[in-house]
C-alpha cells in the first residue's frame, strides 16, 4: 500500500514537472501562440482524478516555479494555477460524470477563464492590451483533453495507481 502511494506521488510529480518543461520549452515565435496549456491540463487531470492528493497547494507551488522560469511577477501564475485547482476541486464530481466531449467543453471554459484572469493581472502590472488570441492555448488544450485523459487513465490502470 505504501509502495503504491509512493509510486502514485512519483507519477504525479513526474508528470507535472514534465508538463512544466513542455510549458516553457523554447519554440519558434510563430508557434508560441499555439502551445497548449500543458501545465493547466495536467493539473486539471490530477485534480479531477485524485482530489484527495492533488489540490490548491500543488497549483501554487507549480505556479511559483513557472513564475521563476518565465520571469513574470512572482505570484501571478501561482495565483491563476491555484485558482484552477480550486475550481477543479469544486467541479470534479460533475466532470467525472460527463462524457469526454462535455468534459472538453468544460475544460475549455476553465482554461479560458484562468487565461482571462492572467491577462487581467498582466494589464494591472504592465501596459499590455488584451488580444483575443490568448484563448487559443485553452482551445487547443480542450481539443487535446480526450486523448490526454484516456492515455493517463490507461497508464494509471497499468501502474495500479488509484
Amino acid at each position: 500500500m505504501v509502495a503504491i502511494g509512493l509510486r502514485g506521488t512519483l507519477l504525479i510529480w513526474l508528470s507535472l514537472l514534465l508538463a512544466l518543461c513542455l510549458q516553457v520549452m523554447p519554440l519558434a515565435d510563430v508557434w508560441l501562440m499555439w502551445r497548449p496549456d500543458w501545465l493547466g491540463l495536467m493539473l486539471i487531470y490530477w485534480c479531477v482524478v485524485m482530489p484527495q492528493r492533488v489540490g490548491v497547494l500543488h497549483g501554487f507551488v507549480l505556479g511559483l516555479l513557472l513564475d521563476l522560469i518565465e520571469g513574470s511577477p512572482l505570484g501571478q501564475n501561482a495565483l491563476t494555477l491555484s485558482l484552477l485547482a480550486f475550481l477543479c476541486a469544486l467541479l470534479y464530481q460533475r466532470l467525472r460524470a460527463y462524457s469526454l466531449l462535455q468534459q472538453a467543453i468544460l475544460i475549455f471554459m476553465l482554461l479560458g477563464l484562468v487565461q482571462l484572469i492572467e491577462q487581467w493581472l498582466r494589464t494591472i502590472v504592465g501596459p499590455f492590451s488584451i488580444h483575443l488570441a490568448f484563448l487559443l492555448p485553452s482551445l487547443i488544450g480542450a481539443l487535446l483533453w480526450p486523448w490526454l485523459f484516456t492515455m493517463f487513465q490507461m497508464l494509471r490502470r497499468r501502474l495500479g495507481i488509484f
Binding site: G55, V56, L57, G59, F60, G63, P73, L74, G75, Q76, A78, L79, S82, L83, F86, L121, V125
Partner: peptide, 14 residues
C-alpha cells in the same frame, strides 16, 4: 481555506 491562503500569499508576493 487553502485557496484563500494561496490567494493572499500570491497577492502579497506580487
Amino acid at each position: 481555506y487553502r485557496m484563500l491562503l494561496c490567494a493572499i500569499l500570491a497577492f502579497a508576493l506580487m
